[in-house]
Amino acid sequence: MTDSSRVWLITGCSSGLGARLAHRVLARGDRVIATARRVETLAELEQAGAAVLSLDVTADQQAVRQTVDAAIQIYGRVDVLVNNAAYLAIGTWEDLEIEDFSAQFETNVFGTIKVTRAMLPHLRARRDGTLVFIGSRSGWIGDAGVGAYAGSKFALEGLVEALKGEVEPLGIKTLLIEPGRFRTKLLTLGNMKAADAASDDYAPIAMALMAHLAAEDQQQHGDPDKLVDLMIDLVRHEGVAAGREVPFRFPVGTDVHADVKAKCRQTLELLDDWEAVLTSTDFGA
C-alpha cells in the first residue's frame, strides 16, 4: 500500500452503487473494505481484491463499533467512510405501518449514525479522513408515496450538515452526495419494500407510482459508473475536482439539478413575496 493510496470502508456493497464504487476504487489503486449484511454476497469483490466484512447497520451500537474496529485493524487505518447502505420503502402515510417508518429510519438514518459514530474516534485521533454520505434527490423533494424514504433522506441532510460543523475543525472532511435517478438496483423488488394500499382512496396513487417505478427501473438516465467515478474524483481531488474546492453538498444528475434549482427558485419567490409577513413577528415589529 503506497503512501498516496487511501483505505475506503463502504457499507451496502452487496449490489448497486456500493458494489460499483468498490470496484472502481480498487481500479484507481486504493484499498477497499467492502461490507454487507451477508458477507457471502461480497464474493466477487473479495476476488477482485477487496477485504470483506459482515456489517448489519441495524445492529446495536456496540456490535457496529466492533465491526468498524475490526475493519480499521485490517490495514491499520481507514481514510474514507462511505455510508451507502439504504433501501426504499413505498407507500402513503396510511399504507405504511409505524413499524415500516421505523425500519426505514433504522437503516437509512440510525444505521448511518451508528457506523459514523464508530468511525469518528479513529478519524479524530488522526485529524484526517473523509466522511461520505449518500443522500438523494428525495432529500430535497418529497414525492407522494415515498414519504418514509424522503423523510429519512431529509433527516440525513440536517444530521450531516450539523456533523460537518462539528468535525471540520478537526481536519475531517464531509461530503454529501445527492444522486438523482441513476441506473442502479434501488428500484428492483429486492431493494424496494412496497405496502398495499390501505384504502381504495389511495389505490390510484399506489398504482401510478408502482407503474412509474417499474417502467423507470433500469431505464434511468444516470450512468452509475460515471457517478462513482465522480465520487472518487471528489474524494481524491482528481479529475474534475483537481485544483477545485469540493463543496459539501453535491446534487448529481440532470433530474436532481433541475428539481433542486426549481425548488430553490420557488423558495426565493416565497421569501420575496411574503417578506413583510415573515419578518413581522419580532417583538416591536
Results as ranks from 00 to 15, higher is better:
residue 270 L to Q: 07
residue 211 A to H: 04
residue 186 L to M: 05
residue 245 E to V: 06
residue 160 V to S: 13
residue 285 A to E: 09
residue 272 D to G: 03
residue 157 E to T: 05
residue 194 A to E: 06
residue 229 D to L: 15
residue 229 D to N: 15
residue 225 D to H: 15
residue 157 E to G: 07
residue 162 A to M: 02
residue 173 K to W: 00
residue 201 D to F: 12
residue 235 V to H: 07
residue 215 A to W: 05
residue 244 R to N: 03
residue 206 A to L: 08
residue 251 P to F: 01
residue 219 Q to P: 01
residue 187 L to D: 00
residue 163 L to H: 08
residue 227 L to H: 13
residue 171 G to A: 15
residue 225 D to K: 14
residue 241 A to P: 07
residue 171 G to P: 06
residue 167 V to F: 00
residue 233 D to Y: 08
residue 237 H to D: 04
residue 208 A to T: 07
residue 281 T to L: 06
residue 211 A to N: 11
residue 279 T to S: 15
residue 214 A to K: 13
residue 241 A to L: 09
residue 258 A to Q: 08
residue 278 L to S: 08
residue 221 H to S: 10
residue 212 H to K: 05
residue 248 F to D: 10
residue 222 G to K: 14
residue 197 A to D: 09
residue 217 D to F: 13
residue 161 E to I: 00
residue 284 G to I: 04
residue 218 Q to I: 09
residue 201 D to Q: 05
residue 284 G to Y: 08
residue 234 L to W: 12
residue 264 C to S: 12
residue 174 T to L: 03
residue 283 F to G: 03
residue 195 A to R: 13
residue 161 E to F: 00
residue 173 K to Y: 00
residue 216 E to C: 05
residue 227 L to N: 09
residue 228 V to D: 00
residue 213 L to R: 12
residue 285 A to Y: 00
residue 252 V to T: 11
residue 203 A to I: 10
residue 220 Q to F: 11
residue 202 Y to W: 14
residue 158 G to A: 07
residue 163 L to P: 00
residue 277 V to I: 15
residue 161 E to W: 00
residue 225 D to W: 04
residue 206 A to D: 02
residue 237 H to I: 05
residue 222 G to D: 03
residue 211 A to E: 15
residue 280 S to F: 13
residue 257 H to F: 03
residue 197 A to E: 14
residue 250 F to S: 14
residue 275 E to K: 13
residue 246 V to G: 06
residue 273 D to K: 11
residue 276 A to L: 05
residue 282 D to C: 12
residue 244 R to W: 07
residue 229 D to G: 11
residue 168 E to V: 12
residue 207 M to C: 14
residue 245 E to C: 01
residue 245 E to Q: 15
residue 228 V to K: 11
residue 226 K to D: 01
residue 233 D to G: 09
residue 171 G to I: 10
residue 236 R to Y: 06
residue 181 R to K: 10
residue 230 L to S: 12
residue 270 L to H: 11
residue 257 H to L: 03
residue 222 G to N: 11
residue 238 E to P: 04
residue 167 V to D: 09
residue 165 G to Y: 07
residue 195 A to T: 03
residue 259 D to E: 14
residue 203 A to K: 15
residue 272 D to Y: 12
residue 275 E to V: 11
residue 189 L to K: 03
residue 231 M to W: 12
residue 246 V to T: 08
residue 174 T to A: 06
residue 236 R to M: 06
residue 190 G to H: 01
residue 181 R to L: 13
residue 213 L to G: 00
